[in-house]
Amino acid sequence: MADYPAFRFDWQRKVRTGIPETVMCEGKTDDQIVEIIEHAQERGARLFLSRLDSARAEKVEIKGLDYCPLSRTAIMGGIADLRPDDASVALVCAGTSDLPVVEEARRTFQFHGCEVPVFADVGVAGLWRVMSVAEELSRYRVLIAVAGMEGALFSVLAGLVPGVVIAVPSPVGYGVSKDGAAALSAALSCCAPGVVTVNIGNGYGAAVAAMKMLNSASAGQGD
């Protein structure tokens, strides 16, 4: 195997962007993951790790690693003191099959010190479910919506609430909906305005986008 550099971690990313670098474990060897973690420990830094499956988490065996098998995420250095819900952002999903993506987003917020509420199983196959929480969802400035199958939840939400809707197509479905393809097309084709879309299953990216939106808005208010 070629002799590549082990890694070049971007420790200055938080200074530049407000969001520190995350370790995406998919595609890395166990030794590479351990080396990155040990490097962070030497610096006394916290780390957020994504796409770390349970089998590999057991192999890594790093003490003090807070691991969540549902989201395949790990937090090194402890969960920060969580700020209470201030009606800035909420997570919404169509069905319980979408919870792995939701949990990836929720854990991303937790790593950054935010506790956000989750409204689960409010898909439009039973429209009464989303209507029963529509008034409460209208309180939030940003909604992260996760849905697979035909992805109809994105348009429905954007037509009900004043806040921005970040659509996350979920890799849930079969036939033409397999792997989130139909949900992605639906998200990009929404007739209701105010929907922005991240890639299939990208709960982490949706959470970061929401934080950047809210941080930018807060900075603008301070000018």
Rank of each mutant, 00 (worst) to 15 (best):
residue 155 S to I: 06
residue 170 S to E: 10
residue 192 A to W: 00
residue 190 C to N: 05
residue 197 T to E: 04
residue 162 P to M: 06
residue 202 N to C: 15
residue 196 V to K: 07
residue 191 C to W: 00
residue 165 V to I: 14
residue 192 A to G: 01
residue 184 L to E: 14
residue 165 V to W: 01
residue 172 V to W: 11
residue 161 V to I: 05
residue 182 A to I: 10
residue 170 S to G: 14
residue 179 D to R: 11
residue 190 C to D: 07
residue 172 V to G: 13
residue 187 A to R: 09
residue 191 C to L: 10
residue 185 S to D: 04
residue 158 A to C: 08
residue 164 V to N: 10
residue 203 G to W: 12
residue 190 C to A: 12
residue 158 A to V: 07
residue 197 T to R: 02
residue 157 L to C: 09
residue 184 L to F: 13
residue 160 L to E: 03
residue 175 G to L: 12
residue 188 L to Q: 13
residue 168 V to H: 02
residue 204 Y to R: 15
residue 181 A to T: 09
residue 157 L to Y: 08
residue 155 S to A: 15
residue 179 D to L: 08
residue 193 P to K: 07
residue 170 S to M: 09
residue 163 G to F: 11
residue 200 I to G: 05
residue 172 V to P: 13
residue 170 S to Y: 07
residue 167 A to N: 02
residue 203 G to M: 12
residue 172 V to N: 13
residue 183 A to P: 05
residue 187 A to S: 13
residue 202 N to W: 11
residue 169 P to Y: 04
residue 198 V to W: 03
residue 185 S to R: 11
residue 204 Y to Q: 12
residue 180 G to L: 09
residue 178 K to P: 01
residue 196 V to W: 01
residue 173 G to T: 00
residue 195 V to N: 00
residue 162 P to H: 04
residue 201 G to S: 14
residue 159 G to Y: 03
residue 158 A to E: 03
residue 158 A to H: 03
residue 160 L to Y: 01
residue 164 V to P: 00
residue 177 S to E: 15
